[in-house]
Write a protein that binds this DNA or RNA. Sequence first.
DNA 1: CGTTGAAATATGAAATATCATGTAAGAGCG
DNA 2: CGCTCTTACATGATATTTCATATTTCAACG
Lengths: 179, 179
Amino acid sequence: MAHKTDLSDAEAEALREGRFLDDYLLFLLASVSAAASEGFHAIVRDRGLKVPEWRVLASLYDSDGQMITRLAALVMMEQSRLTRIVERMDERGLVTRRDDKADRRRVRVYLTAKGKAVAHEMVAEARDHEARLLSLLPAGQARQLKSLLLKLHGRIGAVGPEWPSEKPGVKAQSPRRVV
Amino acid sequence: MAHKTDLSDAEAEALREGRFLDDYLLFLLASVSAAASEGFHAIVRDRGLKVPEWRVLASLYDSDGQMITRLAALVMMEQSRLTRIVERMDERGLVTRRDDKADRRRVRVYLTAKGKAVAHEMVAEARDHEARLLSLLPAGQARQLKSLLLKLHGRIGAVGPEWPSEKPGVKAQSPRRVV
DNA sequence: CGTTGAAATATGAAATATCATGTAAGAGCG
DNA sequence: CGCTCTTACATGATATTTCATATTTCAACG
């Protein structure tokens, strides 16, 4: 039998009990997310965008003309923060804002031609980068990872179809907090 | 054959091409991470902690007495930011700082008795919360998700054993950027 | 040793984010 | 309608973060 290796007390303890963080889902998610994003975020910044701006572009790429509140939910940021980011992006000519004439409280955000160009370019980069990332896993596992993430996501925010509803006057049904 | 449902052009387009974000790994990771953490972060704040503070406590819970730089890497934040957070936590009596006498550039951060108490309490909460989260998936899938995350994480930061090395004078080998 | 270069942390100034509200519209209802 | 409640967005004040850089200490080497 191999003789005991020489560990510090702390290390031995860690092995015996198992560390907490190393297997803690929220930490795993946050740190994989950060690690996976790091490389791409560097690309984003090289193109002169900030990460939150990229997120806005990507959201509008998928569905242009969102209202501020919904966009904020999509990109997971607080409303007043998004307001100011959109403001800067407007000044930089990436987006424009138009009042929703059906509900004049709402402000809808649209990509400008320039914004679309940048968005397309960056989405292409993102797809490239994603392919490189996913190639770190066997194809089956890559698909499985995504599918598990989607499933978990769906079950956490057991939420209705829309979020701030598209139709004015419908009470915003915020995701029922399951956890 | 069922007749065509009435979709807007944009929606039809989305279905045809598939939206970008809905299947984009980095977005999936970020948004699952945010959604999964939301509930627990509310608990953290209820206990009068900020999320970054909780992260520090959790890291020290696993391995007390880290140096600032390494702790910053562990909790994924920039060094000067961590310095100030640790400072506040010191003032609040959650941690203390002691110079490393083997290398006096280094500052090591330790949990105080109070810090340990809070850390233990919160780790217990975290474990509870994690269990609730994981119960949203069948046990096998939960395990699989974690294992895939770990695998991906390992392959992204194709990194050596330590990070800022424990032993003074060893050149810090930063994770080779694979992606 | 003395010099040069890198590492570890701290810190000032500028940029951002957050929190609490203010203001302007819609919705619901008697 | 007129009143009241809620939603959507903006904004001021405060707190936090970031970025660049200063300071101290160690490592390497002639």
